[in-house]
């Protein structure tokens, strides 16, 4: 290698450093754009990708049925052994709907597709807890005298079923985590209920984007009471994870 070439080489880095110094504003700009993009992805795109949306097989009007029956327990009752029946099956529904009673297309669909064909409706259950959780309705409702609405919201006021969102990864209902993707929930169902009562201007009438945060049903929510509420302190893991 000649001396000239060597000098040229030695000189190079200095010139380069000067060239690249000008890159900093652009780099900063890109970083800010990327940060905004990430925020957008994390807060908006991610929830859209994470949850699949399903409509219930029958659009059910809770409000109408509560008016007719007067309470939740007529359909969501406790069995003789104290266990909770959960969602009613055809055996309960056909108490009234063995034949079509009105002109509602959803009722006609129910009778024709399910009652006549002796099929049970595969309802999506918003509040189904994972199999690893033992939950007794009797302990909470009968002994603890809690209202259904405390955990489920005022479902009885709903005039139509809201869509069911399922987490594609875990298979759990979105209601477990809560609608707010941040996981910060204010434990208030009122916005949800009013949206369904038609008093909210949610985009599709189901209260989406209505600005409310609904109560979640994750372990921390249970623990809120179990750890802190006076007289309830049952904090052992095996209270729920038998």
């Amino acid at each position: 290698m000649s001396q000239a070439e060597k000098n040229h080489q030695d000189h190079q880095p200095v010139a380069k450093n000067n060239d690249y110094a000008g890159l900093m504003p652009l780099t900063l700009f890109l970083a800010i754009v990327a940060a905004y993009a990430s925020l957008l992805i994390g807060w908006v795109v991610f929830p859209m990708l994470l949850y699949a949306k399903y409509e219930q097989p029958i659009n059910f009007n809770h409000s109408l049925h509560v008016d007719e029956t007067g309470d939740c327990e007529s359909c969501h009752y406790f069995r003789e052994d104290g266990s909770y029946a959960g969602l009613p099956g055809n055996d309960v529904c056909t108490g009234c709907h063995s034949d079509v009673m009105g002109s509602d297309p959803e009722e006609i669909k129910y009778v024709e597709e399910y009652v006549n064909k002796d099929r049970e409706v595969d309802w999506y259950v918003y509040s189904r807890q994972p199999d690893c959780v033992f939950f007794s309705h009797a302990a909470h409702v009968l002994k603890g005298e809690m209202e259904c609405e405390t955990c489920h919201g005022d479902v009885g006021a709903e005039e139509s079923t809201r869509p069911y969102y399922v987490n594609r990864l875990t298979g759990y209902s979105r209601d477990i985590w809560g609608e707010n993707i941040s996981g910060i929930n204010n434990h208030d169902w009122s916005a949800l209920t009013s949206a369904h009562a038609g008093e909210d201007d949610g985009e599709d009438g189901h209260g989406e984007g209505g600005g409310f945060t609904m109560k979640s049903m994750k372990m921390d929510d249970c623990a809120d009471c179990h750890l802190h509420m006076k007289g309830v302190e049952r904090e052992g893991c095996f209270v729920c994870h038998k």
Binding site: A35, S38, L39
Partner: peptide, 19 residues
């Protein structure tokens, strides 16, 4: 340089999301 900058921005941004 630009890539690292964008990645750092993205990482910072994403860590302020629930993702």
């Amino acid at each position: 340089t630009l890539g690292v900058g964008a990645a750092a921005g993205g990482a910072l941004g994403i860590s302020f999301t629930p993702l």
